[in-house]
């Protein structure tokens, strides 16, 4: 027993003192008690209880927060090998594999998780994201559809991701993508800008020119400042060979700029916009002639 205690103390000295000395010397750097010091503290705990799978799991979480995914994965796998069978570990394994772009391994882990909790929306979302990256678009879409329609508080980012999956599964399913956008607008508010912008892109990509022009008009009417929208609309009109309408839209852009307060006229984006207007006007004139 005494021998064992001595060995233990020797082990503690060998493993922990260098860490502690390092910490004490680097206090000014890590004094805010942030992740680095917490990882070091967890390392000390592990050195004192090296077979505790919970500690490896906890340190893995810290490494993951610190974006050190290799170390996080190493700790999660160690935790697993020591007998950790919790669903939380499977989720973290899936997430860190996903972040490391190891999608096949990520999929295995998320399946393990979902076997224990098949209704968890975060896990189903991660599963759909993994499947998307494995180009298993149909399955990804099914999963994401379930998530979107069951999640309480969706974000614009979720709808945008959902749209991407819809179009990856079928690159002509513009109606499906537009329906998804509309669902997002219904849930998040009709003026959610990132969704309205995506709607415009889909309308343009699908060749729905009149609806795309209506969408430009929506931006023009909805926003306080519309010089950028007039220009973007003109650019689109020129692209679809409607030079006169493009010309009128450019005129409106120029007038909108003239009506701005002096401060805005001097801003780089507005100065650049004036140049772009000139250039497009000249190109339209060439188109006309």
């Amino acid at each position: 027993m005494i021998f064992n205690n001595k060995r233990y103390l020797h082990f503690v000295i060998k493993r922990t003192l260098p860490i502690l000395l390092f910490l004490s010397l680097s206090l000014p750097m890590f004094a805010h008690g942030d992740l680095t010091i917490r990882i070091a503290e967890k390392t000390i705990e592990i050195s004192e209880d090296p077979n505790n799978f919970e500690l490896y799991y906890q340190r893995g979480m810290l490494y993951q927060q610190h974006m050190e995914y290799d170390y996080a994965l190493e700790d999660y796998l160690k935790s697993l090998s020591l007998g950790n069978t919790t669903k939380a570990l499977h989720y973290q394994l899936a997430e860190v594999h996903y972040l490391m772009e190891e999608y096949k391994e990520a999929l295995k882990s998320i399946y393990s998780y979902l076997e224990l909790d098949s209704m968890d929306l975060s896990a189903k979302k991660l599963q759909a994201q993994i499947l998307f990256n494995l180009k298993s678009y149909k399955k990804s879409l099914e999963g994401y559809h379930y998530v979107i329609h069951n999640m309480k508080d969706i974000r614009p980012e979720d709808i945008l991701e959902y749209c991407n999956i819809i179009l990856a599964e079928n690159n002509e399913n513009y109606n499906g993508a537009l329906k998804a956008i509309q669902y997002g607008l219904d849930q998040l508010g009709p003026h959610t800008i990132s969704l309205q912008l995506r709607k415009l892109d889909i309308l343009k990509d699908s060749g729905q020119t009149e609806k795309a022009l209506e969408q430009y008009n929506y931006f023009i009417q909805e926003y306080n400042r519309n010089e950028f929208w007039y220009y973007k609309k003109a650019k689109y009109l020129a692209k679809i060979k409607r030079p006169h309408e493009a010309f009128i839209s450019l005129k409106l852009a120029s007038v909108a700029i003239e009506q701005l307060n002096a401060k805005f006229k001097k801003m780089i984006p507005v100065i650049e916009l004036k140049e772009q207007i000139k250039s497009l006007e000249s190109s339209i004139n060439n188109q006309k002639s």
Partner: peptide, 22 residues
């Protein structure tokens, strides 16, 4: 003795953040 020194060092490392977050 060694345990005490370990404890003291650990305490030294943590003192700043503990003092500020307690």
């Amino acid at each position: 003795m060694i345990k005490k020194s370990t404890f003291l060092l650990a305490a030294l490392c943590s003192v700043v953040s503990i003092a500020q977050t307690a």
